[in-house]
Nucleic acid binder design. Sequence first.
DNA 1: ACCTGAACACCGTTCAAGT
DNA 2: ACCTGAACACCGTTCAAGT
Lengths: 198, 198
Amino acid sequence: MRADALQNRERLLAAATTMFSEHGLDVSVGEIADAAGIGRATVFRNFPTKDHLIAAVVSERMSEAAAAAGKLLESETDDAEIVFKLIEDIAGRQQANRALLEVLSEEWFAYPEMQAAHAELLGAVDAVLERGKRAGSVRPEVTSDDVLVLLKGMCMNPAIFDASNATAGLRYLELVRAAITTPAFSRPLGGVPTLPRG
Amino acid sequence: MRADALQNRERLLAAATTMFSEHGLDVSVGEIADAAGIGRATVFRNFPTKDHLIAAVVSERMSEAAAAAGKLLESETDDAEIVFKLIEDIAGRQQANRALLEVLSEEWFAYPEMQAAHAELLGAVDAVLERGKRAGSVRPEVTSDDVLVLLKGMCMNPAIFDASNATAGLRYLELVRAAITTPAFSRPLGGVPTLPRG
DNA sequence: ACCTGAACACCGTTCAAGT
DNA sequence: ACCTGAACACCGTTCAAGT
């Protein structure tokens, strides 16, 4: 691979990363190319389709989330609270990177990187859930699927949850917590709901 | 208004209703026009933008959901269970009409019909919640916002919840139930999570 | 008055022409 | 080898030309 070609590829990946984080997956290929300082067609020389570019970029961010969950496991966090720390962490990543959970749907499992990163994340979440279950704070039936599906619900509603509306995000996390907590560890819902009223 | 124009408008609304229910909001104006048997430009003679057409069609469906909630209130349903009946009803409507909850986001509140229908639905859900709270099955802090936001999370993930995947939908409803139920009325999560595994 | 094919500015994607 | 402007088929939207 030629040196200039490699540099173009790196610029493209960097630009795509920031554009997707800030604006979600809807940013156009043209805008990404402009931000990278390369021609539109060069994007398609590196990735056969826009979706392949998305898979390459977002699967990286998903792996990072999985790694963070792994580190959390090695930290000295209280077993009963560790799941909720993880949920906060993933939610925070979603706030910093709008595309992170947007990508949790069937269509993306066709991409190997995405499937791998997703499996990593599911595995890490399961390990954390296990600790919570042993501590008695998490319902034994809860799976990592449940947690990720609930978190995805959050990211899909920009009115409810975006970086500028932290309180609504907190409320949603309270609902997620309530959904997966055992009655013994149940507590009142904090935060305030913020859907605009009629 | 001329008779043929009125007929065109009705055909357009009927076609848009079925197309949006079956395929969500992404169906193109061209496809709707073809299904209605009218020219593409005629759509824009009746509605200034595609979004105005969406608002007209989907706000109707949302009002129907609100009306159904009203009828549920007048039925002899057990107070402790009525909220969960309502959630099932709305989820069923979402399965029959993919566009119903897709439209629950800030951008749509600019449309008066949408805002009105949304207020109707919130009001009806609140009334049902009130019954559940008095019966002790629903946490006192839960609002209609919470319920609709959680239900929207379901509709945004076609892999988790579509008409062909009823079991995944059931599981999600169990999570919603767990999120809003009081510890006293808590029960184990039923159903099986179905996110594809790595 | 109302209808609509053709045209416009966008999108993702392809390709011929450049170095 | 690699890059890229121009072109293509789509989209939502507009408009001039038709009845």
